[in-house]
Amino acid sequence: MEVRTIKVFTTVDNINLHTQVVDMSMTYGQQFGPTYLDGADVTKIKPHNSHEGKTFYVLPNDDTLRVEAFEYYHTTDPSFLGRYMSALNHTKKWKYPQVNGLTSIKWADNNCYLATALLTLQQIELKFNPPALQDAYYRARAGEAANFCALILAYCNKTVGELGDVRETMSYLFQHANLDSCKRVLNVVCKTCGQQQTTLKGVEAVMYMGTLSYEQFKKGVQIPCTCGKQATKYLVQQESPFVMMSAPPAQYELKHGTFTCASEYTGNYQCGHYKHITSKETLYCIDGALLTKSSEYKGPITDVFYKENSYTTTIK
């Protein structure tokens, strides 16, 4: 009895394709271990004539594949690729409408935090270190965002349907971005203890939790000093293409032309909904596939993004 075979390709990165001759009487799992086709788990399936010449994702289970996976995804987590594939199996079914010149995501599976993050990423200057993220990001900007969303979920250790947080998501993504040249110098002034300067680099240099107003941050924000008295913390120097200011959701007025974009969060910790506000020729609110415009805006804002380049204080 002759062994019926077909020729397929296996890959971990969709760049390096490895030619395989597979036995049609055995499952993919018996031949390769966990195997995925377009995100779908085909591990328990036997090869079919229609699979001839198709590319299958496999887990990096030998040295060659491990090197290829690390170079593309910059992670050695053995569960990463499987999590990416199972997320992709959902995100490829989502709709990605162009809204006001940006790629958004039609609401499904509690994905409003991903839509808000995706919209924000198209408006701030950011370059990702893992080629996987950078490639998928370019495709997302062009309207094909399924891979990018699935990668975000995998890097953030999230599953489809789980509630997510924009600030946490951005923080994970910033860790995989090139923020080497970003720098922030802060000064804390206390009447009792004097003053202390701190220099922050990388992710810490672009994120701040405690106030939404970048102007206020430049002037000074009140913080408790270690001595128990009130101290003032203010920005001395900022070198970065953008800054992200966050605070627990509270009524906040966004003035046209003073910011790049913002995240609105309605609801409580267990259950809520994100919308995205962007400042173009007027203010726009993007909620999944829905767009509304207004000249002014007041609502429960939790993150505001500002364009920056270089700032030095005039406070002496």
Rank of each mutant, 00 (worst) to 15 (best):
F148V: 04
S86L: 12
I152N: 03
Y28T: 05
A205H: 03
F217H: 03
R66P: 07
L102R: 05
L126R: 04
Y311P: 12
L291F: 15
V166H: 06
C190S: 01
C182K: 03
C285I: 14
V3M: 14
P34N: 14
G194W: 02
D77F: 05
S50R: 12
G143V: 02
Q237C: 12
Q31W: 13
K298S: 14
G39K: 06
A142E: 15
F128P: 05
Y84R: 03
T302P: 00
L114R: 03
V166R: 01
E168A: 11
S79I: 11
A136K: 03
R66E: 12
N157G: 11
Y172W: 10
L173D: 04
S181W: 10
V8F: 06
R83W: 03
Y28C: 07
P249I: 03
Y234K: 08
R167I: 02
G220N: 01
K201P: 03
L114G: 04
C112F: 01
T5E: 11
T103N: 03
E204G: 10
T10P: 07
T278K: 00
C149W: 06
K106M: 13
Y274G: 00
V42T: 09
T312S: 11
V21G: 11
K54T: 14
Y234L: 07
S50F: 11
V99F: 14
G82C: 14
G202W: 00
Y72K: 09
T27E: 14
V243M: 05
K7T: 14
N187R: 14
K316I: 14
T260A: 12
A145W: 07
T169E: 04
L151C: 02
E204M: 08
D38Y: 09
N147G: 10
S310A: 12
Q20E: 10
E68V: 04
R83T: 06
E2W: 08
H256Q: 13
Y137I: 08
A146K: 06
G39L: 08
T282D: 13
T103A: 06
I286L: 07
L65W: 07
V221D: 03
T312K: 08
P97H: 12
V67T: 14
G228L: 02
G33S: 05
E239G: 02
F70H: 08
G143T: 02
Y214S: 01
D287Q: 00
C156R: 03
D109N: 09
A154L: 02
P47R: 04
C112A: 03
W94P: 03
E264I: 14
N187E: 12
K127E: 12
T232S: 07
K44V: 14
V67S: 14
A108S: 10
L65H: 08
G257S: 07
V236M: 11
Y96K: 02
E296N: 10
E2K: 11
D287P: 02
T313R: 14
C285V: 13
Q30L: 13
G220P: 11
Y73E: 03
Y297S: 02
E144Q: 10
F259W: 01
Q238A: 04
N14A: 14
Y252C: 10
K92Q: 11
I152D: 04
V8T: 08
T159A: 15
G53T: 10
N111P: 05
T278I: 11
M209D: 08
R184Y: 01
L173Q: 02
K92N: 09
K191F: 08
F259R: 00
Y57F: 13
T313K: 14
T232Y: 09
Q222T: 12
T55N: 09
Q270V: 09
T313S: 14
Q270A: 15
P248G: 05
I315H: 15
D165S: 15
L212V: 11
H74I: 06
T76D: 13
G257F: 01
L186E: 15
Q196H: 13
A150S: 04
S104T: 11
L254K: 02
S240I: 01
K106Q: 12
N147Q: 14
Q195I: 13
K93G: 11
R167W: 02
T120N: 11
K298R: 12
K92S: 10
R66Y: 09
Y208I: 11
L254P: 01
A289E: 15
D77Q: 07
T27N: 15
M26W: 12
L290T: 15
D135P: 03
P248I: 06
P97D: 08
V206G: 01
L212M: 05
P97Y: 07
Y274K: 01
N110V: 03
F9P: 04
S240G: 06
M26V: 13
K158Q: 05
F70S: 07
Y234E: 01
I286A: 01
T198F: 14
T43R: 11
L118Y: 06
Y284P: 00
C112D: 05
R184L: 02
E125L: 03
Y311M: 10
T55K: 10
C271N: 07
G161R: 04
L121Q: 01
V188K: 11
E204A: 11
S294W: 11
C156N: 06
F128H: 03
Q216D: 14
T282P: 00
Q216N: 10
K158G: 02
T35R: 06
N14S: 12
M244V: 01
N129F: 04
L126F: 08
L59G: 08
E71I: 07
G194S: 02
D13V: 06
